[in-house]
């Protein structure tokens, strides 16, 4: 069973979304020991004793909270479907790089697709969150 199935259907953590089911869109991104993973392609049995963090925990995470606040300030979401995945990837990026460049953002977040094309606002919000955290 994919981790995403377990999260959504078994324990009702529905903040993580199902997009493509093939690890190509990023909507289902969660953290595995802090690194972003696509939960739709991650067998739940492979998790072992590693820690899974989902969008539900971001409001109590220092970086996650800053990202969410920046997301609201910049009014990033349109339809919002991909945004929990975007926020998970952005949080993981800010954890490894406090002041990312545009290129860093592109490299780390290109795997998260947004059909409303909120990419510019995402960039602005990541920079804003980085500033707030400094």
């Amino acid at each position: 069973m994919p981790l995403l199935w377990y999260l959504r259907d078994e324990i009702s953590f529905t903040g993580t979304k199902f997009g493509c089911g093939m690890a190509l869109c990023g909507a289902c991104t969660v953290h595995l020991n802090g690194d972003p993973v696509r939960s739709c392609q991650m067998p739940v049995g492979d998790v072992g004793d590693r820690q899974i963090t989902t969008i539900e925990a971001m409001s109590s995470d220092r970086i996650g909270k800053a990202v969410q606040d920046a997301w609201i300030a910049e009014q990033v979401p349109q339809c919002g479907y991909c945004q929990s995945g975007q926020i998970m990837s952005a949080t993981a990026l800010l954890r490894v790089k406090a002041a990312p460049s545009d290129e860093d953002i592109d490299a780390a977040l290109s795997g998260n697709i947004c059909r409303c094309a909120t990419y510019r606002r995402i960039r602005t919000a990541v920079h804003k969150a980085a500033q707030e955290l400094r």
Binding site: A23, L24, Q41, A107, A108, S110, G111
Partner: peptide, 9 residues
């Protein structure tokens, strides 16, 4: 970045 890093890193 867009299509491969999501799985291969």
């Amino acid at each position: 970045a867009g299509d491969c890093a999501g799985c291969h890193q």
